[in-house]
């Protein structure tokens, strides 16, 4: 284990009665959610059901109201800077790598905002877990394929030494092989680094395969489901 991984002790996320939305469109109506330390949680549901909104509300990117919002026992402030400092890293939908920066620079950016003490060793720990990144380190991130960009975005999240990694639509626009390998690398990295994972995706099967628990968002509230139970999933998607 590297120095970086030891420091990344996990913490529990506790949310109750979360309400959030865009202007008129209230998307989340009183959602309750708990993520235990070290737990891998998948969030599924069709488009527009509020999956991304949930992650943005947690990292403080959008206005929200909740009865309780705590991470590691401390209240979550409505500020992305504080979220990163508290140990929450958010990998946004569409990857959003910084296209004009090299992969190496993208990783460095990931380490600036957070609570990283020894960036070099944390970075090395992350790069070791994503060996396919190594040959790309000096290329511009904008010139990479979708799968490569997704990998960079996740690595950029991990170098912030998060206690909770949030990934939005990992599988979006990627081929099944790419999805399979990136998912495996992400989940194993989180387990090794001791971070919990909150992973939002439309791809229910991939969540079921990798996560400890899958939640279905429906009508702005969350329901625990068994991803193999097609009856429950059909009612959400069809």
């Amino acid at each position: 284990m590297t120095a970086g991984s030891r420091a990344a002790a996990s913490a529990a996320l506790r949310i109750s009665n979360l309400r959030a939305g865009y202007g008129k469109a209230r998307v989340l109506h009183g959602l309750d959610l708990a993520v235990e330390p070290g737990e891998m949680v998948g969030v599924a549901g069709p488009n527009g059901v509020g999956k991304s909104t949930l992650l943005k509300a947690i990292s403080g990117l959008m206005p929200r109201m909740a009865d309780r919002m705590e991470f590691g026992g401390a209240p979550l402030k409505q500020s992305p800077v504080d979220a990163v400092v508290q140990g929450i890293a958010h990998v946004p939908e569409g990857r959003r790598v910084l296209a004009d920066l090299t992969v190496e620079e993208n990783l460095r950016i990931g380490g600036i905002g957070g609570r990283v003490q020894d960036f070099a060793s944390v970075r090395q720990g992350v790069v070791d877990r994503f060996p396919s990144i190594v040959p790309l380190l000096h290329r511009k991130a904008g010139l990479l394929s979708g799968g490569q960009q997704q990998l960079v975005a996740i690595a950029r999240g991990l170098v912030a030494q998060p206690r909770l990694l949030m990934v939005d639509e990992l599988s979006l626009g990627l081929s099944p092989t790419a999805v399979a390998s990136i998912s495996a690398a992400t989940v194993s990295s989180c387990r090794e680094l001791g971070a919990s994972l909150l992973w939002v995706d439309q791809n229910l099967a991939i969540l079921g395969k990798h996560c400890d628990r899958v939640i279905l968002l429906r009508d702005g509230v969350a329901v625990d489901i068994d991803p193999r139970d097609t009856g429950a999933t059909n009612s959400a998607y069809f």
Partner: peptide, 11 residues
Amino acid sequence: GVETAPLAEAE
């Protein structure tokens, strides 16, 4: 996302 054979143009 039910797993099936990868699509032809696996990226």
